[in-house]
Simulated scan of single mutants.
Amino acid sequence: MASGQGILGSLLLILILVSSAPKLSESARIFTLINDCKETIWPGITPGENFNGGGVVLKPTQSIVFTAPVGWAGRIWGRTGCNFDKNGNGTCQTGSCGNSLKCTASGKTPVSLAEFTLASVDYYDVSLVDGFNVPMVVTPMNGGGNCSVAGCDQDLRATCPSELAVKSNGKTIACRSACDVFNTDEYCCKGVFGNPTTCQPTSYSKLFKAACPTAYSYAYDDPTSIFTCSGTDYVITFCSSRNQTVCTYHNHKLYCNESQSPKLLVGKWWPLMLALPFMINLLLIS
């Protein structure tokens, strides 16, 4: 369960951003990115035209809302240990897409990666095929179909085999894939291993899968790792649990997924809703 401060901050930001935004088309998908980590995360997004040019900064408990049209196909990941100047130039320890806050290329491996294809039926997944750098969960809300929660809420940095570990100052900051480290046909699912029949789970991918059963652990890990949903909103949370309460603003109403069943924000949240106009006023004048 998220902290009250974290949920409150997310709700306030969602309401403020949506109330000041132009009316969304019925086909637009709402993306809410939330940082529940104890450290700052710099999400990268490609293509980034609908996402602040491809990069943002999220301090702990902060969130941000974007919209993307049907037809958008892209990737979202978290960067860690970044240092950018006032012009958005700098570097990151993990997930770097170059020397800019705003990404025009995918993040450098190892990186936890959320992938989306928005159409009449959306396809989405979280992939650890290129390694792991931060826990990441994708929660679809208000959609139709299977609409399962995807991702990895375990911190694989703590259990990463030493031969895959990326370290900085003695601390494991990311976990590489076996393909990235050993570059063999078997680990990389290429050559004679380049099809679903011959490419099988390895001891390393099984470690990833055991910790994160709804994330891709190797190239052909499709049946338990790729999901579909229609007309949905997406909440992408870093360092969250799969059953954490998250919220989205949909059809001019705020919804949360308590007990994994999206519902209108009612019940114990009504005092917060009554107080929101006053709190928003304070934010705007402060």
Results as ranks from 00 to 15, higher is better:
93 Q>N: 14
184 T>M: 05
272 L>N: 07
284 L>V: 11
228 T>G: 03
118 L>E: 10
52 N>Q: 10
50 N>Y: 15
165 A>K: 10
196 P>I: 10
126 V>C: 02
143 G>M: 05
83 N>T: 10
139 T>S: 12
209 K>A: 13
9 G>A: 07
13 L>E: 11
151 G>N: 01
133 N>S: 06
237 T>N: 10
54 G>P: 06
183 N>K: 15
82 C>P: 12
65 V>A: 02
71 G>A: 05
209 K>P: 03
187 Y>K: 13
68 A>S: 14
93 Q>M: 14
38 K>H: 01
201 P>M: 06
48 G>E: 04
10 S>F: 00
265 L>V: 08
77 W>E: 09
130 D>W: 03
168 S>I: 07
95 G>R: 14
46 T>N: 01
135 P>S: 12
122 D>L: 09
60 P>R: 03
121 V>Q: 14
114 A>Q: 11
86 K>W: 09
166 V>R: 13
58 L>F: 02
250 H>E: 02
89 N>A: 13
180 D>H: 12
45 I>V: 15
171 K>T: 13
177 S>G: 12
77 W>T: 05
168 S>A: 13
250 H>W: 08
19 S>T: 09
232 T>V: 09
238 F>I: 13
33 L>Y: 04
231 G>N: 14
72 W>F: 06
186 E>Y: 02
50 N>E: 09
70 V>N: 07
246 V>I: 09
111 V>G: 09
205 S>G: 06
244 Q>K: 11
155 D>F: 05
153 D>C: 01
261 S>W: 00
171 K>I: 11
223 P>G: 06
50 N>R: 04
98 G>S: 10
22 P>T: 03
71 G>H: 03
10 S>C: 02
163 E>M: 11
144 G>Y: 04
125 D>G: 10
46 T>S: 06
74 G>N: 07
99 N>D: 14
231 G>C: 00
14 I>M: 11
115 E>W: 08
183 N>C: 02
165 A>S: 15
149 V>I: 14
125 D>T: 09
112 S>K: 10
194 G>T: 08
177 S>V: 05
35 N>H: 05
188 C>H: 08
96 S>C: 08
18 V>L: 03
52 N>A: 13
21 A>T: 10
266 V>P: 00
24 L>T: 08
243 N>F: 06
126 V>F: 03
134 V>E: 09
133 N>L: 04
282 L>G: 07
283 L>S: 08
224 T>S: 15
29 R>A: 14
52 N>W: 01
111 V>R: 08
160 C>E: 11
217 S>G: 12
190 K>I: 14
125 D>N: 15
283 L>D: 06
140 P>M: 05
115 E>R: 06
55 G>A: 05
38 K>I: 00
16 I>E: 12
147 C>G: 02
66 F>G: 04
178 A>Q: 11
67 T>G: 00
32 T>V: 15
140 P>W: 04
184 T>W: 05
177 S>D: 08
11 L>W: 06
122 D>V: 11
94 T>L: 10
60 P>A: 02
182 F>I: 03
162 S>M: 06
176 R>M: 10
129 V>K: 01
136 M>H: 06
251 N>I: 00
264 L>C: 01
127 S>C: 04
247 C>A: 15
162 S>H: 07
217 S>A: 15
148 S>Q: 08
56 V>R: 04
237 T>K: 09
64 I>N: 03
211 A>F: 04
175 C>R: 09
